[in-house]
């Protein structure tokens, strides 16, 4: 197993390199200029030219690319073109917020989605099935920012139960957690729809499968059949889906981060894109790709635990 993990990590290096190369060049080809973005539209043309020089944007592209790779090899993520601060500082500040939000949203998706899926599968083609379907699809049809606004209006403004916007430091865990609940719901409800529909589909396949019938024939109670066999067999697609959600959550949480004014990696990434902060963007992408590689690896490893038929080698 350890050898497998090591090999996968080694294999990840070319992936990472490919991603970085594409990102490096694409952000520079896309129209927009960091010097103008940094100085504002009031700045004169000379000032912009001077800024470009200072930012090192007049260096040949291949030279900038090699510098970037060389720095990276030394573990240096470089400095932001716009703020001049070390990017690693910015990332390590926001990363815990993002990971926390992603985990909380996944928990929401699993806690709501899997039970809805199981129940609607067991009560297939009844009213309960239809209600479950519509409830989970409503969450999917509402964009996260719309959902966020509605949640904020109900829970923060009308009921006054939870804080509306902002975040609290990790050193104040009680307050901190209060700030996570609404954003996690806004994100997690979208996942709930996917999770519920897929769990239902998987469960229905499994419930009609041979080994379940065998288990039933053996005289196991319905509940035992469900827990011991059906759910376990259904875990593979659920694990895959959770992995994919973890990935898209980190990238797409930006909307929720903006609506709730939370710090986060998604926001940092979009901000850097808007400001054409090349150095920040490419370094954020390094971290982002690393996270994805780890999540994919974890997903693949979990397969082997939930389904002994899958072997990795």
């Amino acid at each position: 197993m350890l050898r497998y993990i090591l090999r996968r990590l080694l294999l990840a290096i070319p992936t990472l390199l490919a991603v970085l190369t594409v990102i490096f060049f694409i952000v520079r080809v896309a129209p927009g200029d960091p010097a103008t973005a940094a100085l504002g539209d009031y700045a004169s043309a000379e000032a912009v030219a001077a800024m470009r020089e200072r930012m090192g944007l007049n260096e040949p592209l291949w030279k900038q690319y090699l510098t970037f790779l060389a720095d990276l090899a030394r573990g240096d993520l470089g400095r932001s073109l716009i703020t001049g601060k070390p990017i690693s500082e910015q990332i390590s500040f926001v990363l815990p917020y993002t990971v926390e939000l992603a985990i909380a949203a996944i928990v929401v998706g699993l806690i709501l989605g899997v039970p809805i899926g199981v129940i609607t599968a067991l009560r297939r083609n009844t009213l309960i099935d239809d209600i479950g379907r519509i409830v989970s699809l409503v969450g999917l049809s509402l964009p996260a920012f719309y959902l966020g606004i509605i949640l904020m209006f109900v829970f923060a403004v009308k009921l006054g139960l939870l804080p509306s916007v902002g975040s609290a430091p990790f050193s104040n865990p009680g307050k901190h957690l209060q700030h996570v609940i609404l954003p996690a719901l806004a994100l997690g409800l979208i996942e709930t729809a996917y999770m519920a529909r897929m769990t239902r589909s998987v469960m229905m396949g499994i419930l009609s499968d041979d080994f379940i019938r065998t288990a039933r024939a053996k005289g196991l109670t319905e509940r035992m059949v469900l827990i011991r066999h059906a759910l376990r067999a259904g875990l593979i697609p659920i694990v895959s889906l959770t992995g994919i959600f973890a990935i898209s959550l980190i990238g797409s949480s930006v909307v929720v981060e903006e609506v709730f004014a939370r710090p986060g990696l998604g926001r940092l990434m979009v901000g850097a894109t808007k400001q054409r902060d090349y150095t920040a963007l490419q370094s954020i992408m390094v971290v982002y790709s690393l996270i994805i590689i780890v999540i994919n690896l974890m997903t693949d490893i979990i397969y082997t635990f939930v389904d002994p038929r899958v072997r990795i080698d």
């Binding site: 490919a18 991603v19 594409v22 896309a30 990238g251 990434m269 894109t273 994805i292 590689i293």
Partner: peptide, 17 residues
């Protein structure tokens, strides 16, 4: 994995560019 490593926005930017 490479394709997954691009957030939606970046994929979009890439296609436009």
């Amino acid at each position: 994995d490479i394709l997954l490593s691009f957030p939606d926005l970046i994929t979009g930017l890439l296609v436009v560019a």
